[in-house]
Design a protein around this nucleic acid. Structure first.
Lengths: 242, 242
DNA sequence: CTTGACTCCTTACCCAACGTCAGGATGTAT
DNA sequence: ATACATCCTGACGTTGGGTAAGGAGTCAAG
């Protein structure tokens, strides 16, 4: 008798902290349609429905719009495990950003408390970091796009896509003249490093060899994701501020 | 020449990561009106404007609607320092929730990976914790309401308000028969403990004396914020699962 | 078996915080 | 002078629900 077999909408709402309205909504847009209705037309959710709801909430927390979530979940090669994995990854990103936020906030707090005036640079940095929280889901979206792909070529494509994403972002920052101790710059450098480590299997030597190579042959037009000297210097520079 | 004196809307957008549209919007609802316009009507933001923008973003991250933010900022006894302080406090709450989230996620991930089936209880717990992130700003709202009050009686009132908030939440959970190892229960117990520690100035003995007293006189109708034996047992129980 | 007190149903309008054009004026680099 | 980016002001669209209305279903107590 420990295992219930059906939940009515109100019960489910209470247990999950969602509202009844939300569940109705998900039903109407056919994102989560309870597998049964009672004689009187009351929604009855079963275990499978709840499992689906969990997937929905996870994806929602990752920042996807409901419509996309529907597509993903209904894709034939959808894998629940990956969703959870991605969510864990994201958690780490978030924690890092929060650490940055904390340090920015602490700086400002100290300045305010001692009645010094806060420089514009600090203010802008703070605003930027606050925003990253929202803005960051875009990266996740990239990673997710290939959720249903095969594992071989997909892995590579995913990396290439993220690499070019990072590099184009860096170009942007260079164009804007962003300072190397800027939080956004630091975060970009961090991502670049992480990715190259994945590429090379974490082998420091390969990285160093490549760096050396590009330093000596600065104008090699090799398939390099557009990492030229300028970009490279920017990364190095930002990295030193991490 | 290191200090600019004016920013156009696009510049500001780029630096902060906000969109131009957002700044336009804030201008239209008169949340942030640039202090100058160029001859041609272009918005020119100065340092004070940016400082205000930072306050806005901080409050927004705390979960307040723009309309409320406007009220707060324009209140005569508004204190920027407190905003930052509150944001730091919130950061801690968020980190705690994320730790809970991580542990729930890890459990599910392990189960999924080893092809065991995941119990409904776990799924529901996970959904709950995911939701806390959004739902939690309510508590902050309570704390914030009194941002402009005096410091003496206000401090007490704030505590009383939060205490009765917590207790009524606990009553809810009891009514719903929530298990003591439920994340929501644990979080509530944590808040209760934190608050009582503030009340008593962290003096363990006072807490213990009070506990003893209420155990021996279970039906004292003293101004006790409605903490009766049932509530008390629930807290103790949940606490043991933290 | 009826009367409350809940919970459920559907339909429908409402809202915040922007996104996304459209059409035109400004600015600025070559 | 000619692009080309950036600015302006409307104005309509969108997402993810909140909120209210009017009517049945359910369940325990009298």
């Amino acid at each position: 008798m420990n295992s219930k077999t059906g939940w009515k909408v109100g019960e489910l709402a209470n247990q999950t902290g969602l509202t009844v309205r939300t569940l109705h909504h998900y039903d109407k847009i056919r994102l989560l349609t309870p597998s049964q209705r009672s004689g009187a037309g009351h929604r009855i959710y079963n275990e499978a429905d709840i499992a689906r709801l969990q997937q929905i909430m996870s994806l929602k927390q990752l920042g996807f719009p409901l419509e996309d979530i529907k597509q993903m979940i209904e894709s034939p090669d959808f894998e629940p495990t990956k969703v959870v994995q991605l969510q864990l990854e994201r958690l780490n990103d978030q924690i890092r950003i929060q650490e940055q936020l904390r340090s920015q906030l602490t700086i400002i707090y100290e300045l305010l408390k001692t009645k010094q005036d806060v420089s514009v640079k600090h203010l802008i940095n703070l605003i930027e970091v606050i925003n990253m929280d929202n803005y960051f889901t875009q990266e996740q979206l990239n990673k997710m796009k290939s959720l249903g792909d095969q594992y071989g070529p997909e892995e590579k494509r995913k990396h290439e896509q993220e690499m070019s994403d990072i590099v184009s972002n860096i170009r942007e920052e260079i164009r804007k003249g962003t300072a190397p101790d800027n939080p956004k710059a630091i975060e970009l450098a961090r991502r670049w490093k992480e990715l190259t480590e994945k590429f090379t299997g974490g082998d420091e030597n390969i990285v160093k060899a490549a760096e050396q190579f590009y330093k000596e042959n600065p104008d090699t037009p090799v398939e390099n994701y557009g990492v030229d000297e300028e970009v490279y210097r920017f990364i190095k520079n930002a990295m030193s501020h991490a």
